[in-house]
Design a protein around this nucleic acid. Sequence first.
DNA 1: TTAACTTATGAATTGTTATTCATATGATAA
DNA 2: TTATCATATGAATAACAATTCATAAGTTAA
Lengths: 117, 117
Amino acid sequence: MQDSIKEKTEHEEHMRCALESMPCEDDLNELAARFKAISEPSRLKILLALSCGELCVEHLTQAVGGNQSAVSHQLKTLKDHRIIKCRRAGKQVIYSIADGHILTMISVAKEHLNCND
Amino acid sequence: MQDSIKEKTEHEEHMRCALESMPCEDDLNELAARFKAISEPSRLKILLALSCGELCVEHLTQAVGGNQSAVSHQLKTLKDHRIIKCRRAGKQVIYSIADGHILTMISVAKEHLNCND
DNA sequence: TTAACTTATGAATTGTTATTCATATGATAA
DNA sequence: TTATCATATGAATAACAATTCATAAGTTAA
């Protein structure tokens, strides 16, 4: 029974850590919302496309194979959560990944996909 | 106009990359589903708690402050997507993060939260 | 084997979110 | 200034997912 006593102590320590390090509701909700923004197939597709470099809406629409309106809505969601950013170039609006953290997440996700575990 | 020609060429290259590297529907959907599993506030809370170390259901329930049934449903979702794993120890079932990739994602997410960009 | 404890599950309800269609806005060139 | 092209948006519908409640199932100890 030594083992289970040791285990119990460990779990109490994990509990303490969990309770202490838990972010506040607002931070947690924002973090979750950002994950959720990434987690729709159509939006993830957009992000995978953008991980190759910036693209305008029309090209994105082709790359993900949707219709223009749907893609625009999806872009808005991603932009609202600061997952992507955009700049205007004449008639076109050109989108790109907002920052390195996002790119890291997409990369980790791709890896995960490849090694399939 | 030299600039915009150069830009156009770059975008064509991005397009080519995007189209070539796009995973198939099934892979994409699974990847998205895994992100989605992470992206609900209650489930993210569970993962943040588990990033401190393994915990049994009762402790998890306390740590995230829900009711037992809800937490069990959430755990099932996470387990179905191989985000977490579990082992039985007597009456209890003890959950932990499934692998290093997930832990990396959670860590990147936490960082993101802290530097607030 | 019964009682107590811990975790899991099915069904129903409620709440969310994506997509579509129609149209608006913004930018350029004729 | 109008016509055209590129993108954005509001409203409605339709698809999906979370939570709750009641209860089942697995495990241990008496």
